[in-house]
Design a protein around this nucleic acid. Structure first.
Lengths: 341, 341
DNA sequence: CTGAAAGCGCTTACAG
DNA sequence: CTGAAAGCGCTTACAG
């Protein structure tokens, strides 16, 4: 492949001039520019971005780490990030951490070597000490749904509020024995949802029952298994709040296979509002977070940091308000009817 | 950030030795190695991958272009690619082309400048002439579901067979007026599905009706709209074959809002077997392609090419056999009962 | 408006 | 086992 030297030679100019034609065309005479451009075309010269990045200390590439691209949440975030990134002329290095701290760490090292201009970490598992590597390399960083509250740029959904909203809604409809299927509890977002759930119960003088709180894995299968367990209780719940939609959908499946009706026999509320939520039967009442927008926002914050290196110590913290999407699975219609009768 | 020169100085060796410790440790004396390693740790030296790549002409990065990461097919492909890629110590640059030839082109130029070691293009829209850019740069390339049959490495599902399988199945159950909602017809895969559909009808002496073939957009919404149109026909179909599951799910939604029962009033078969397919009500009969595996295979072929540069002219072509997943939405159970009664 | 030259930070063939 | 030096392919401050 042709390099800048060959272009310069063939055009009868210095490599400096070729470089200027590419980067600061206004500083080169039109005649020269034209000549160089035609040689570039003739030789099909594609400038070497590695050399360029090495000289400029800028790669126009950012890293996006997600725990599991198969969870429909993350493609939405990725899309949000990409829409900003593309418009800025950047590329995204995408990594799946599989919720593994080791893999996340390993990827961060690779990415640091590749000199990415910034990081967006979602649901990061890393101990704060590990962020130091990134900070010391002076690479801007944005955390989405980090399980703590470190001194970094963050975009965080108020999951505690979300858990409250879901539970409060079920309480208002009239349910008394509300179960909760949690996500993996080492992630703060899941702890927060659970705390919100308990808080709502307590605020309404409802007692919490330990056997009504079951751990799930954030997957359809986990929701299925958890719901089966709940249904086999001596005193089964009359409603379930699942910490994500995937589990809620698994729970719906389990409930149906037991021959029970939703919401008549048991109500269910999810979390995330993935597209599937409004397509299952009955349509799932769930807590919605603007995931695509969170990707957008995270990317914008990241570029803020990239473009203002001086502000390295200025952090932006965005807290997202989740919203309840009332559909069919919570049975609010039936209950209203009961009340009116 | 420390560079290799500072490490060398502090360790009292040459930069060559530091480089060797990093890349060929067996060629350096244990004592020296240890000393260098400790300085590396002390200085928190992170080797500059750009410089390394520039010297080696290898970036350990491949590009993956998808038309729309929000379509659940593509995260599965991405996962397959990533699993191989991670194990090889490579990273993925992910790009969303939005089915736009311009955007795809633009990304390919950026990626070529960044000197990626290989490309995986899914559902590429590019005219063959554009592949030349990649070929001339001698960058290995694998196409997944490319809309033609170019002289490249390809992984292609036999969509024509898939279309036949779906339609044949409906015919065998006993349906006579089978409609087809197509995907965008400028993509070969959608043409192929449609041809398969027609072929199955013809092979069974069923006539095709132009108004039973409706264009869709591969999205839930498009399926919804298309189904509405079909239902409003003077002589509506008794079964629908949708070119993808998203549209099939949209169609199910439309059919339900019309107060019709699936499959009793009208049957439906989709394509792709996305996870949602087995979670909607009724569970969707669909044609399955092993998408994750296709990602794996594509990545393996790519690494074959990357690791055997000499074989640049040797192309692998993998044709994937789709499989029919019979569930509830096609009504095969009801029909069987009819036959037995 | 243009060129010569230093610099970005690595790797490795060659010589010892 | 180790070092000096050339090379990878750019950019830009400096001088003209």
């Amino acid at each position: 492949m042709a390099n800048i030297r060959e272009v310069a030679k063939k055009a009868g100019v210095s490599v400096a001039t070729v470089s200027r034609v590419l980067n600061h065309p206004q500083s080169v005479s039109p005649i020269t520019t034209e000549r160089v451009l035609s040689v570039i075309k003739e030789l099909q010269f594609t400038p070497n971005g590695l050399a360029r990045s090495l000289a400029l200390s800028r790669t126009n590439t950012i890293a996006l780490l997600v725990p599991n691209i198969l969870n429909p949440l993350y493609p939405q975030i990725a899309k949000g990030v990409e829409d900003v990134t593309h418009q800025k002329g950047y590329n995204i290095l995408l990594c799946n951490t599989e919720y593994s701290e080791a893999r996340e760490n390993q990827y961060i090292d690779m990415l640091l070597e590749k000199r990415v201009d910034g990081f967006i970490l979602t649901a990061s598992q890393l101990p704060p000490s590990e962020f130091k590597k990134i900070k010391e390399a002076k690479v801007p960083l944005v955390l989405i749904d980090r399980d703590e509250n470190p001194p970094e740029n963050i975009v965080y959904t108020d999951y505690l509020l979300g858990g409250q909203l879901a539970t409060q809604h079920l309480i208002e409809i009239g349910y008394k024995r509300i179960a909760h299927i949690t996500g993996p509890l080492h992630l703060r977002e899941n702890k927060d949802k659970c705390i919100g759930y308990i808080k709502a119960l307590e605020e309404n003088q409802l007692s919490t029952h330990e056997n009504l709180i079951i751990n799930g894995d954030n997957e359809v299968e986990g929701g299925y298994i958890a719901a089966k367990k709940l249904l086999s209780l001596h005193n089964p719940p009359d409603a379930i709040f699942a910490a994500n939609d995937l589990m809620a959908i698994g729970a719906i499946d389990a409930i149906k296979t037991e021959g029970l009706k939703i919401p008549n026999d048991i109500a269910i509320v999810g979390f995330d509002d993935i597209r599937m939520a409004s397509l299952v039967e009955p349509k799932l009442t769930t807590v919605s977070q603007p995931v695509y927008k969170m990707g957008l926002i995270a990317a914008r914050i990241l570029f803020d940091s990239i473009e203002n290196e001086d502000d390295i110590n200025y952090q932006q913290k965005i807290y997202i308000q989740p919203k309840l999407m009332v559909r069919k699975s919570c049975g609010h219609e039936n209950r209203l009817r009961e009340i009116f009768n």
